[in-house]
Amino acid sequence: MKKKYLFLVLLILTVIGLSVLRTFVLNNISTSGVELGQIQDELDTLQTQNAVLAEQVYSYSSLTNISSKAAEMGFVNQGSQFVLTAPVPVAYNQ
């Protein structure tokens, strides 16, 4: 009989203990929604900044932009070109 009661008491104590633990954990995470919201806001801000910077990089590195900036700076189209080595003929004279 004592063993039965012991088992029952242990069971009840376990249930109470787990309930208390559950309450404790839920209480702790109930306000983490605020943190989650802050993290989401920060993530959103960083993603937006990243996208804006990427847009600027693409605009500045476009050939259209580089070409117009080059023209403003006085660059001109390539004129004639020269080759350092002459084309090799099919056969040489001895």
Partner: peptide, 9 residues
């Protein structure tokens, strides 16, 4: 969301 509109984990 909770009543204040904040996301719940």
């Amino acid at each position: 969301h909770d009543a204040m509109g904040r996301p719940i984990l």
